[in-house]
Design a protein around this nucleic acid. Sequence first.
DNA 1: ACATAAAAGCTAATCGTTTGCGTTAGATGA
DNA 2: TCATCTAACGCAAACGATTAGCTTTTATGT
Lengths: 185, 185
Amino acid sequence: MARPGGRSARVQASVHAAVRELEAEQGREALTVPLVAARAGVTPSTIYRRWGDLQELLSDVAVERLRPDTEPADLGGLRADLTAWAEQFLDEMSSTAGRAYIRDALLGDPDGGNAGQCSAYAAAQVDLVLDRARERGESGFPAREAVMDHVVAPVMYRILFRPDGLSAEYVRRLVASALDRSTGR
Amino acid sequence: MARPGGRSARVQASVHAAVRELEAEQGREALTVPLVAARAGVTPSTIYRRWGDLQELLSDVAVERLRPDTEPADLGGLRADLTAWAEQFLDEMSSTAGRAYIRDALLGDPDGGNAGQCSAYAAAQVDLVLDRARERGESGFPAREAVMDHVVAPVMYRILFRPDGLSAEYVRRLVASALDRSTGR
DNA sequence: ACATAAAAGCTAATCGTTTGCGTTAGATGA
DNA sequence: TCATCTAACGCAAACGATTAGCTTTTATGT
């Protein structure tokens, strides 16, 4: 049975905070389980028992930081909304910090749960944009999955596998292409 | 100056072989640097010096195993060739072993060189298929980058971020969509 | 052949990781 | 409210991985 409240919750919050603080202060290279434990006021064995190893802990923290903190802007039309969201998505994900979080999230993730969460975040944002288009009465917009396949996936693939050749212009082409396709061109 | 020949090459081959053997015999969980070193007839410090840590070594080995070992089949036409290649690509990459290699390749890869190599392998295979179409005199085939964005990227994205919902049918749709788009629909 | 230096071997000290066991916080039900 | 039970934590010892310093081997260029 789970024990979400009380001490366990405090330990989790304290450890996560310690990771973020030390990451900001000394960089990820310097992170070790004993170091995090000391900052969090916890013994190393507690971390090993709860998270298994440093990578799984970093994965948890990374997913938190990849959660979108704002809704996509409403610029009055689907094309503008989707383009703006995709450009912001690229900015956040392709930054040095963003790449590090993506890697961490994928890394210490035996069952794929954390990676799935990242994908779900993006899908939810896309849904918001598409829902708005639907409410406006726009027609011919693409399915959520089409946007995931033809905008989100290429961006993430390039971030992970081809660190160069990413630009706002590239993302705009992807969005335009996804929209054109859905309108029957 | 580099010293590619002789002892260094023997050590590299021996260590790589040891990784593959132990991985097959005992599974990746059991792998440690001292264990690999012992099997390879090498001291641990040699491995630490050349590869840094176990992850970077595994990343090197994983890239080797992700190198395509056969050319894409020639079935007489672009659509058939590309579809067949993409289905095989999905099979190899989405298998348990394939996912493990992809993860390893991304994992111990500070500068992104190994990940870039993986992408280059896929791009080369796509080029072979497209070159053949060009030689046949087919027209209206997509650019290499279009195939990477709309076929390879979605497949890899789903493998990494959404472990379910992958099927040969899904890949066929991606290929068909990429081809339709390039012919002006 | 000889000189040079890159890469590997060796050893010891350090540090991270794992594990067993006792203790405590806090959830549960009378 | 109080008694009880247990998951989670602290502690400390044992273990294994990593690093540093030094020596030895051996490609490579002259």
